[in-house]
Design a protein around this nucleic acid. Structure first.
Lengths: 238, 238
DNA sequence: TGAAAACGAGCGAGCGCTCGCTTTTTATCG
DNA sequence: CGATAAAAAGCGAGCGCTCGCTCGTTTTCA
């Protein structure tokens, strides 16, 4: 069994959620904190660093991961690390910001023909969100698990992002209620309750893996549950 | 406005979820780790310590809460603290174990006439779980937020408890499917998805408080959503 | 007055971060 | 071209500090 990483063979489509692609965006966003000038080198090493942070943090938590651990895992030295960020906290913000931006961008990209019909739009949002968190699994786990104990600016960022996602769902539910697709008593609460259903897939990933649950069945399960709960014409609220 | 805490006036029913009552059980369970012999004193001081841990941890995380912080908050000295536990990790296990035992005990206490009917039983489980987490709010938040970065034994305890709760729900769903109350395609997945709905109430407590959401409406919202999704005879799965 | 409880300075270890130095890469020119 | 110097990148011992925890001493109280 051979695992090929990083080697591009010909005209293969570049995965926009590969660590390097994500790190290229991070680098762009935090150019002033990274003192390494060569773009390609900086991207590659940043990818090594962040991959290591995600691995070590999932094992023992971010605060319990020391920069010496990180140096050992990446093969860089203490000083070497500090040419890619100016503070341990910056490292945390790099990851968190990328997660927030990615989810925002992904959920806003619904095709017009989907966005036109609330029921299709809702299905699309649920599937897109779950598949995004699947593609960026460790990133979302990191953002979720380390959210507490964040410094206040990072915490605010996380809270605002959470709220923004909820608003996206609330808006679609609202539209669906107005055009008669959905029958919902409390739109705000329903939107709030959809979020933890989406999060459970990556938060409890190990559990689902052990049961042989696939992402397709999970997506179908969540969509099914939500739709039975809100589709108009089936039963209506008591 | 006067807030009375701890003062017992006459024949008032002792709250089984008051910090002191919980700490009395903790003390019993960890008698060998606490070197203070006087029962009443030990319970009171343990309550002060654990209350402080919950406050400080919710603000900055458990690992970032130093024993010096804890000493300042409780008014005890470093050495004084160590007569109530032998290790910082023990302190964590004390809290976690009490949470696990409480939820187990609470969910097993359904009255026979409720347990006999799946639909009533499911409602009762949802309401009981949410109300328990409300009564022991900071305890559950602590267990949930600090679960990562737990030492392996604590982590296993948390995982097993999570699974046990899910099994309780799965069993009721199963019974309901057999007697025709419920129509569910994937019982295991449905049971898994109910849990995050229950947790959201204490995990995102601040959000719900800001919106003026009450526990009654939250309980009703979750029960409503779950029932519309699984009650037989309304629509049936596609 | 003696046992129980509380105290708090001090220990070694490990933390995030720095900075003077070495190695590698790149640009320049005889 | 190969030699070479300037610039970029990488290195790691060491700084000041805080951590969890200990233990000889003092205080409290039955």
């Amino acid at each position: 069994m051979t695992i090929v990483t990083g080697a591009r063979t010909g005209a293969e489509p570049p995965d926009p959620y590969a660590t390097e692609a994500l790190c290229a965006r991070i680098l762009e966003r935090h150019r002033d904190r990274v003192s390494v000038r060569k773009e390609r080198l900086a991207t590659q090493n940043l990818a090594r660093i962040i991959e290591a942070v995600l691995v070590l943090s999932s094992r023992q938590g971010f605060h319990e991961t020391s920069l010496r651990d990180l140096a050992r895992e990446t093969g860089l030295s203490m000083g070497g690390l500090y040419t890619y960020f100016d503070t341990k906290e910056t490292l945390l913000l790099m990851i968190l910001t990328e997660v927030v931006e990615s989810v925002q961008a992904a959920l806003a990209a619904a095709p017009p023909e989907v966005a036109a019909r609330p029921r299709a739009h809702l299905r699309w949002l649920i599937e897109t969100h779950i598949r995004l968190t699947e593609a960026m699994g460790p990133w979302f786990v990191f953002a979720f698990m380390e959210a507490k104990g964040f410094p206040p600016p990072a915490r605010r960022l996380a809270t605002e992002s959470e709220l923004a996602v909820e608003q996206v769902f609330a808006k679609v539910l609202e539209t669906g209620v107005r055009n008669g697709d959905f029958a919902i008593e409390d739109v705000s609460l329903t939107a709030a309750l959809i979020k933890p259903l989406l999060q459970d897939w990556y938060v409890k990933r190990a559990k689902y893996a052990k049961r042989g649950m696939t992402i397709e069945r999970y997506v179908a399960g969540v969509i099914g549950l939500v739709e039975r709960a809100i589709l108009a014409g089936s039963d209506g609220p008591a």
